[in-house]
Amino acid sequence: MLDLEKMQKELDDLLASETKESLLTWLRKKRVEKYDDFFGEGEYVPYYGQNIALLLEQESVPQIVDGGEDYRGDYQYSKAA
């Protein structure tokens, strides 16, 4: 049986130890992984390389649905414009 109090304390301690830098580093890595996962590592470097900073300016990453056919490029086009 899960000990929810212990789990809550684990989370409280963890969150208290986080800084802006530690969270930004983690979030950047996570979003880069997600783009790599979708596009294939390196395949979108020409665009992506120029806009790496913008990746984190998104409120959240674009919605990628199964198979990728409905990928919405709002981020690319709105930012590029």
Binding site: M7, E10, L11, L14, E18, T19, K20, L23, L24, W26, L27, K30, L56, Q58, E59, S60, V61
Partner: peptide, 21 residues
């Protein structure tokens, strides 16, 4: 802390990546 709103996937991955629970 960051100014960015995470997705639900990112919050769940955060728990896993930080190796708690």
């Amino acid at each position: 802390k960051t100014g960015f709103t995470p997705s639900i996937e990112e919050v769940n991955e955060y728990f896993r990546d930080r190796n708690i629970w």
